[in-house]
Amino acid sequence: APVEIKFSHVVAENTPKGQMANKFAELVAERLAGKVEVNVFPSSQLFGDNKVLEAMLLGDVQMAAPSLSKFQKYTKSLQLFDLPFLFKDIDAVERFQSSADGQKMLTSLESKGLVGLGYLHNGMKQLSASDPLKVPADASGKKFRIMTSDVLQAQFEAVDAVPLKKPFSEVFTLLQTKAIDGQENTWSNIFSKKFFEVQPFITESNHGVLDYMVVTSAEFWGGLDADLRSEIKAALDEAIAFGNGIAADKANSDKQAIIDSKRSEVIEISAEERALWVTAMKPVWAQFADEIGADLIKAAEASNQ
């Protein structure tokens, strides 16, 4: 019988991640028919993001692509990607991820039994809110929903905002009723989750990155024979490149769709205003330098050139 790879993710099939997973399944079916079979389970059908890594360690899921923030209890170094204003755009992110340092970070989960196979982009994060945010002082005292991440918490505290953890299922209602003032997300998430309908202002801050890591379990990966492993990896790399292409297009088209909807005003900030945000949030780097590694932060910053 062929080796089964269950690929479990939490988003719809038409998203960049969903299409990347389907592409991977397609490529494997073409090239490794009879040897490997990839079954994709979208929309949290198998497991949610909080449990999928555990299920992988138990051997019931072979591949998943959670967002990088989800790994904070498995390794501290991946918190790097949550640092505010570290990368100026998605190309810089790409440069760093494909550098030797970036590739080395894929192995940072090994002590916990997981292997990173590659990074997948969602995009750069923007700030949305019920009031216009131009300078850091505008965010002061406002409540922002964050994913569970110590870095993101520190990031909002750095501008005197109030970070709140709320389950994703409640976020829309809380934003709609203004119980929470704002949130940060990529263009494609703001569009697909309809946040732009309940958030009248979106600041194009590009202040952070929201990326995923495709992971597998060390036990499963090590158990494959080397040829098969490299063929699967090749198919995956191709699928990731395909997914990244879609993600880049989508970031642009979703941003345009939001502007066209006229439901939300997109605020562009000047270089001076942006500098204020950077000054306010950059101290967060020092706060986490010990956990992440100062050299790594430097290397990441260097990828902006």
């Binding site: 005292g141 409540k143 918490q153 109030v162 970070p163 709140l164 953890k165 389950p167 119980a179």
Partner: peptide, 12 residues
């Protein structure tokens, strides 16, 4: 949240 404009980060 409503009265003191803050949260309890471990509450959830």
């Amino acid at each position: 949240r409503f009265g003191f404009n803050s949260g309890i980060h471990w509450a959830q």
